[in-house]
Nucleic acid binder design. Structure first.
Lengths: 208, 208
DNA sequence: GGAAATTAATCAATCGTTTGATTAATTTTG
DNA sequence: CAAAATTAATCAAACGATTGATTAATTTCC
């Protein structure tokens, strides 16, 4: 069947990403990647040079598309609060649409053996942190926000989303959902956005 | 020298924990553990049966001491807000005093190949979530707290702390510190506690 | 027909684990 | 008390299995 033509290169990337997400980089063997992708083991080295080459390719691809989604929220007409709300919405959607990759990224961020990879993730993440920093700092300077600990507010925004993705969620009456279930995911997205927008509004703009 | 008597068993545990934290479980070899601890390789299996046995032992130890620190905040005399503030203080201190282990725990939580380990961590973590849940729900019921999305508030409290520990911190003017530096750690602890207490106070008790 | 893609077979290195032997300490026995 | 027996702790060496990588031959495709 000639219609069965598949791009082995792409198949390897997809299989590797799935496996890396599930069992980690060291926990995934090249033989597993070959089997899962339907490619011969040698194809991994043929296309990517090495196992690490596959990993780097995956991360670069993802981080690039991540960065490209970073819309410049710099229209003069909208308020600092409105900017922040848009960033929250974009950030929640992005992460909850890529939960497996987000977990893998966080895992890699806590390891020390691939400093090159760590730096890449750090750079991508600090872009987001700086964007939020500029918005909040701007709001404080123009008087629309209270004077707050900016670093801690950033930790709250990013940490809340990450916690929803990583922490166990089938655990309590108030938390009993599955992010692999599309309906649950949609609901959690909406709740996360509503919560973070509400929280930042109250905390940043309530006069004492 | 009889004073030079060292407990090899303990040495293995400590070396293994350090290495597991730094390079992950699969990324650490038994030979590395042996070298780092000064013990013979065979001692690992002699004392713990297997590499995984070492890992399980470390996690059990840590989780047990974790749980024992969970003070029952159930004195009738203090308000829900006061209870919540105490939990925040205890939680921040506990995690920032064990950042390496906390990272490892989170890493393990995002992997699927050791379900037994995942369940242990999940159980430990859900205890904390349930404690916070009871406090907030109680506050809502007695009218001292606003009606909020409890799961999301929990994600905010726990996620904020985890983000401080895991996210890169030498990155921006507003975030330039090193948790390995005792002075920085002390400062961050204080800021994290102040921020989360302030945040929860404003968000949970401000009347709209 | 020739470049690109794919394969099976093989490589040295490393993995976690086990072995049999040895030491040092403790307990039992006469 | 001292000799004999037993135990726990430690070691170097080796085990079979698996790792990531490479080779050389073959197939596919333009």
């Amino acid at each position: 069947m000639k219609t069965e033509k598949v791009d082995k290169r792409q198949a390897i990337l997809e299989a590797a990403e799935k496996l890396f997400c599930e069992t980690g980089y060291e926990g995934t063997s090249t033989r597993q990647i070959a089997k899962e992708s339907g490619a011969n083991m040698a194809m991994i080295n043929y296309y990517f040079g090495s196992k690490e080459g596959v990993f780097v390719e995956i991360m670069n691809e993802r981080i690039a598309s991540f960065a490209s989604q970073l819309k410049i929220i710099n229209e003069d007409k909208i308020s600092a609060l409105e900017k922040l709300h848009r960033v929250i919405e974009g950030y929640v959607n992005r992460i909850l649409n890529n939960t497996a990759f987000h977990k893998m990224m966080h895992r890699e961020l806590s390891l020390t053996q691939r400093p090159e990879m760590y730096d890449k993730i750090k750079d991508a993440m600090s872009h987001n942190m700086q964007l939020i920093d500029r918005i909040i700092t701007g709001g404080i300077e123009d008087g629309s926000f209270n004077k707050v600990d900016v670093r801690m507010v950033i930790a709250t925004i990013m940490g809340t989303i990450t916690n929803i993705v990583i922490a166990p969620n089938k655990v309590m009456p108030c938390s009993n959902f599955d992010l692999n279930n599309p309906k649950d995911k949609k609901m959690i997205k909406e709740r996360a956005i509503a919560h973070l927008q509400d929280l930042t509004t109250v905390y940043l703009t309530t006069k004492k």
